[in-house]
Design a binder for these strands. Structure first.
Length: 550
RNA sequence: GCGGGCGUAGUUCAAUGGUAGAACGGUAGCCUUCCAAGCUACACACGAGGGUUCGAUUCCCUUCGCCCGCUCCA
């Protein structure tokens, strides 16, 4: 499914344009760009930081302000190493990998099915060679056409009873894939019967590489002495700090179950392969709630949270139809999970996860209670008993959601100039106003008319304490409108000659109030999405805008 | 990490073993009465390092980054 979308040249081109726009307008830059960048790290520019803040603020208000069963929290990134030992990250957040020498495919070493059979070990091969066998050896000019022997150990496992010929076939494939030469003979070293070996690829019998470990946590040292006792990790998720502080937060917040803890913060994963712009980064930000509920009520809260979160995405401009709810199958679920929904968005590069909503049972609290030897139970006054609550965790990626918002907002449309009939492409970011980095652009129609400039500056000053606005007087008014379109600014306010001279004819203000002919102190209000213009009284602007950006 | 492709202004694209060009965009000025108008000027690039060479953006090596595939994705 993903590869189908990846292959779509329109989608790829759209993604390229979004990336270019992000840089051009200052949403997102590559980290440490002047030094060649750093794979999997990104910086948010002047517009990007506003967008990201607006997104986080809205999440924060949704969780901690408009509901009273969740309290906020901000945990440290560095924690006692014991946290990661108790959570299981230190032991399991790493994968021993092996590689098939023949196909170069990689497998989890612990998922290789043990094989039995006869293993044929080869020392190398003889070939009539006319090309270099060793590209790194400058003395090997590749001009030799002598029959040469090349040492390159390899092995193939074949089922018991099968002849060596089938092993030779695989070995020839391996050698021929590495040299452009006619292989005349294989040099057999030995053969032996093996039982339950995990050294060979079950799919083709090819020898596998030695297992190598990929630890996804960034290891670091606390304090000046870099020895074993100083090791800890940059947190790979924000969740653990909330579990570890469960008792403290519960105590001071005077909450009863069900209740939750909300946190927004950075997390770090040493991903094998960061990809797709900011989608998979090594440093990223999470928005997570740990919602603690009575034992047995986890499943129903899982459903509630799924609906809650879907509604939230609609409120930031991502339609429900673009969100795919994946019920994660048992086999793919993390071991602690008793049920997980993934909310996925249709990115141009494929359908990918924005948020995981997991019913984690009491796994985390139990682990920390066992390891710390500190009781983390909740006393239920109603039931007169102590228990470990279950946890439902809606865990969303901030950067991924920002990217989804950008992808969803990006639009190109063909607009026709009415005078010249000339067609042009208008690029516009249709952010919902509450997320837009800049809420309004403020313009004097002409910059060489001091009265217009002065009035526009006055409106700017009046709005600045209330919201992020931008003043611009450069170039033609049309150019300035197009510029704010690309930045996703929903409203344009233009001070024109009607502002100074009074309205030419009677009309209706954007607020619905009548405007009499000759009335002064009105400006043009221009809408980003429709490009429609209407008039509004200067005095009404703050209330009008505030009602639309909440 | 493996395999393949690719790195020239912010963007799109030229040219070249011997001073790197354009368009759009940007900045400033003039002008401009509502959707990227016009004029003038200015700034901005051969991803980085090394090698070959009298001279390298061009050839070679390394490295970094990007894209595609594999893999991974607590």
């Amino acid at each position: 499914m993903i590869s189908d979308l990846m292959a779509d040249p329109v989608a790829v081109a759209k993604m390229d344009k979004i990336v270019a726009l992000c840089k051009r307008r200052g949403f997102i830059f590559q980290s440490s760009e002047i030094y060649g960048g750093l794979n999997g790290a990104w910086d948010y520019g002047p517009l990007g930081v506003e967008l990201k803040r607006n997104l986080k603020d809205y999440w924060w208000r949704s969780m901690t302000q408009v509901r009273d069963d969740i309290v906020g929290f901000d945990g440290s990134i560095l924690m006692n190493r014991a946290v990661w030992q108790a959570s299981g990250h230190e032991a399991t957040f790493s994968d021993p990998m092996v590689e098939c020498l023949l196909t170069k495919k990689r497998y989890r070493a612990d998922q290789i099915e043990p094989q039995s059979g006869t293993a044929y070990y080869y020392k190398g091969f003889k070939a009539n060679s006319s090309v270099p066998q060793d590209k790194s050896n400058p003395l090997d000019d590749g001009q030799s056409i002598l029959s040469t022997e090349t040492a390159l150990p390899f092995a193939v496992l074949v089922p018991k009873g099968k002849p060596e010929a089938s092993a030779q076939k695989t070995a020839r494939q391996y050698y021929e894939g590495r040299v452009q030469a006619t292989i005349t003979d294989l040099i057999l070293d030995r053969s032996e019967v093996v039982e339950k070996s995990t050294s060979f690829n079950p799919e083709n019998g090819s020898l596998l590489s030695e297992p190598r470990t990929f630890n996804l946590m960034f290891k670091t040292y606390v304090g000046p002495v870099q020895d074993e006792s100083a090791i800890t990790y940059l947190r790979p998720e924000t969740a653990q700090a909330m579990f570890v502080q469960f008792k403290n937060v519960l105590e001071v917040s005077r909450k009863k179950l069900p209740f939750g803890i909300a946190q927004i913060g950075k997390a770090f994963r040493n991903e094998i392969n960061p990809r797709n712009f900011t989608f998979r980064s090594r440093e990223f930000e999470q928005m997570e709630v740990e919602f603690f509920v009575k034992p047995g009520t986890g499943p129903e809260w899982l459903e509630k949270w799924k609906e809650e979160r879907l509604a939230w995405y609609e409120a930031i401009g991502i339609p429900r139809a673009k969100i795919h709810v994946l019920t994660v199958p048992d086999a793919d679920r993390a071991f602690y999970s008793q049920g997980t929904y993934d909310l996925e968005y249709e990115f141009p590069f494929g359908v990918q996860e924005l948020e995981g909503i997991a019913h984690r049972g009491n796994y985390d609290l139990k682990q920390h209670q066992d390891h710390s030897k500190k009781p983390l139970e909740y006393f239920d006054e109603e039931l007169k008993q102590k228990y470990l609550p279950e946890v439902v965790e809606p865990s969303a990626g901030v950067d991924r959601t920002v990217l989804a918002v950008l992808c969803e907002a990006y639009a190109e449309e063909t607009v026709k100039d009415e005078e010249s009939g000339k067609e042009e492409t208008r690029v516009v970011l249709r952010f919902v106003p509450r997320l837009a980095p800049i809420k309004a652009g403020i313009f004097p129609l002409l910059k060489n008319k001091p009265e217009l400039v002065e009035k526009a500056r006055g409106i700017q000053k009046a709005l600045q304490p209330l919201m992020k606005v931008a003043y611009d007087e450069a170039g033609s008014i049309g150019k300035r409108y197009r510029r704010i379109d690309e930045e996703g600014t929903p409203f344009g306010i233009t001070v024109d000659f009607e502002t100074l001279e009074g309205a030419k004819e009677a009309s209706v203000s954007a607020t619905g109030a009548p405007i009499a002919a000759g009335e002064k102190e009105t400006v043009t209000l221009r809408h980003r999405d429709s490009m429609k213009q209407e008039r509004i009284a200067i005095a009404d602007i703050p209330a009008y805008l505030l009602a639309r950006i909440a």
